[in-house]
Amino acid sequence: MGINGQDWASYQSAAPNTAGLSFAFIKVTQGMTYTNPLWTQQRDHARANGLVVGYYHYPEMGNSPQQEADRFLSIAQPQSGELVCLDWEGYDAENANVPKATQLAYKEAWLRYVKGRLPHSPVGLYCNTDYWTTIDTTKYFQDYLWIATSGRPAGQPGISGAWMFHQYSDSGGVDQDYCRLGSTAELHTWAMNFAPAPVQPAPAQGPKWPGVDLAQGSTGTYVREVQQRLHDRGWTVTVDGVFGPKTKAVVVAFQKDSSAHGWPLTADGIVGPATWAALWNRPVS
């Protein structure tokens, strides 16, 4: 039993129907000049409906794979748990005269270069069975293979490769896809497994957490300790024992900065046990 998805381009609407879907691949770029004008709306729509999101680039293989990849990544900017893919096919005018050996070399270079740029993201290859059987002599697809066939049942692409996704139909004016994993959660977990493990905090140092959250409106010695610690770490804050709006703003800024440096904190302006521990244990950057 697998799960269903679709791949979207500018031919689809900005908000396709997501009923019954677990994932969506969105075309972002083509070559060095084209960007799907709907891709950000489609991305936001997919995210809002709980879909695992993937982004793909359609190449013009006479160009530099590194330059095309750099442009694609500068636009797509995938988040953790989101997939990237090369849509490797070349039946259009831009690719028709590109030698097949060059097309193969482009694929190899693009995948390896993008994986080097995104070591903690799933990077994969889309191609049809013609390209898979006649042009791809290496069978290198990096982290996953998305194979396209015509007239075969979902989940039965008819190849021996270790495929993850199968594009099996274009019914209803949109490409229909299948993933061999069992649920949206399983696909999300698989994608997140590429992300680095969170940094584990060092053994507790500093004063013990007081056992109660400190937030706007709190006063007293513990608030003063938090303010003093923020001040000692280089943040501009008044050490007066009053947790006012300015103190909250500094706490939020500290939480965001901590998350950016591998100490994941919720940026809510509340000093709970995790934020308290980070104040004393996170190395000063």
Rank of each mutant, 00 (worst) to 15 (best):
T266Y: 03
G81A: 01
Q228A: 10
S22M: 06
Q142Y: 03
G5E: 10
G272V: 13
A69N: 11
Q228H: 02
V174K: 00
D175C: 11
K208R: 13
G234E: 02
A46G: 15
G54V: 13
D257H: 06
F23Y: 11
A69E: 09
P203G: 05
L181C: 07
F141L: 01
I75S: 05
E94V: 09
T247K: 00
A267C: 12
P59Y: 02
A278C: 11
V199N: 07
S13K: 04
W235T: 07
S13M: 05
F141V: 10
T40L: 12
Q12G: 14
V199A: 07
Q103R: 14
F194Q: 03
S150C: 04
D143Q: 02
T221C: 08
W263C: 09
E89W: 03
D232A: 10
C127P: 13
Q6L: 13
N193T: 11
P59T: 03
R180N: 06
G220K: 01
Y131C: 12
N36T: 12
R282A: 15
S183M: 02
P198N: 02
L230E: 03
G161L: 05
T238H: 05
A162Y: 12
V98L: 10
Q216V: 15
W209R: 00
W280G: 02
P122R: 00
P196E: 01
Q66F: 03
V284P: 00
